[in-house]
Design a protein around this nucleic acid. Structure first.
Lengths: 191, 191
DNA sequence: CCATAATGAATGACCGTTCATTCATAGACC
DNA sequence: GGTCTATGAATGAACGGTCATTCATTATGG
């Protein structure tokens, strides 16, 4: 196994274990076992467990952003662009349940709070694809004039909640339902 | 301190510590210290830590339901009733941040998943005040015809997300904003 | 004086992390 | 080419620390 493969195996094992059992009950001993390496080897690739967890989150964020941009065109109407983003996110989550669970756990932990705080402080101009879209929508007066974080909450709060319900098996989503949910999110944002 | 007071002190200490530090870093030793009892005393009131955590959650759920029913009248128009429920919930959360954080952490943990699974299986007729309202809304054709869990997600997903942002200090909510958010939730549900 | 409640040191399990040791590999030298 | 040596990646037993839980002992109050 090459150096990069080993690093990848550790990340993958961490993803699987944290998604299944939560941050607790994902001890380094298990991560190492599942990755097919020794416990000490983890520390050749990551300074400590916190760093491993944070780097894995960054990896996932990159993958998510890539999935959202697929098929995204800036010249479509506003409503269509919004629905594309929101439904792409939901589709990514339900077809990548482990990634979803990891991201959710991360956000709902001291890691996530610290991370968001840093992000909000550091972020000035380039604030991501959604942010761009929302700002534009507010100035064009097509969506409600609310503080940016609240627009995020209205748009993505339901998505996360829906994805969780689907993954836990409490509802069964199909393409039609995904579309209707995305439209409902739009309804809550539009003026 | 009476017997009931001591039990209450343990619950209160658990609430505060879990809200502040998460389930990890809320060790029994600290809970005991903050409650003004010895570590062993906890086990006179609760079989073990899991039972303590679950009982505290049930307590909080009762309190939340009570807060929602305050001022709720069944003969108001549908939209008004919905907005009452949703904005009451949001108000409860932002004026009880520790309770909010606890409930959120609980839901986002193996405790919460097991709990919801039991709840969904055991629940047949009496399914709570929201459930009643949503079912009625669907048959009266005033809200979208979506599976019940999805209606919950659309209504409360944003509320939880907004409450978190407020409590973490990323936005500052006032009564006007709360009202507008509740109305936006309604927009996403209404036909 | 006794039953019951409360105590907190002791226990054992498990955690993240370290580090002395092993070992496969690759360059150096003849 | 064959032998020796240097390297550093990988290992996993061991360590210090923390946790939930127990239980022999002490305190309380009726």
């Amino acid at each position: 196994m090459s150096k990069e493969d080993k690093r990848e195996a550790i990340l993958q094992a961490t993803l699987e274990l944290v998604a299944k059992h939560g941050f607790h009950d994902a001890p380094c001993s298990l991560i190492a076992e599942r990755a097919g390496v020794a416990a000490g080897t983890i520390y050749r690739y990551f300074e400590n467990k916190d760093v491993l967890i944070n780097e894995l989150y960054l990896d996932l964020e990159t993958r998510i952003n890539a999935a959202l941009l697929e098929g995204y065109t800036i010249d479509k109407p506003f409503r269509e662009r919004f629905i594309h983003l929101v439904s792409s996110l939901l589709r990514f989550f339900i077809s990548n349940p482990r990634e979803f669970k990891y991201v959710e756990q991360f956000h709902n932990s001291p890691y996530g709070v610290a991370f968001r705080r840093d992000r909000l402080l550091g972020q000035h101009e380039d604030c991501g694809i959604y942010c761009e879209l929302f700002k534009q929508g507010v100035t064009q007066q097509v969506i409600k004039d609310l503080p940016l974080p609240l627009l995020f909450d209205l748009a993505f709060g339901p998505i996360v909640s829906v994805a969780r319900n689907h993954i836990l098996g409490f509802v069964l989503l199909d393409d039609a339902l995904i579309q209707r949910i995305a439209e409902a999110c739009w309804d809550s944002l539009k003026r």
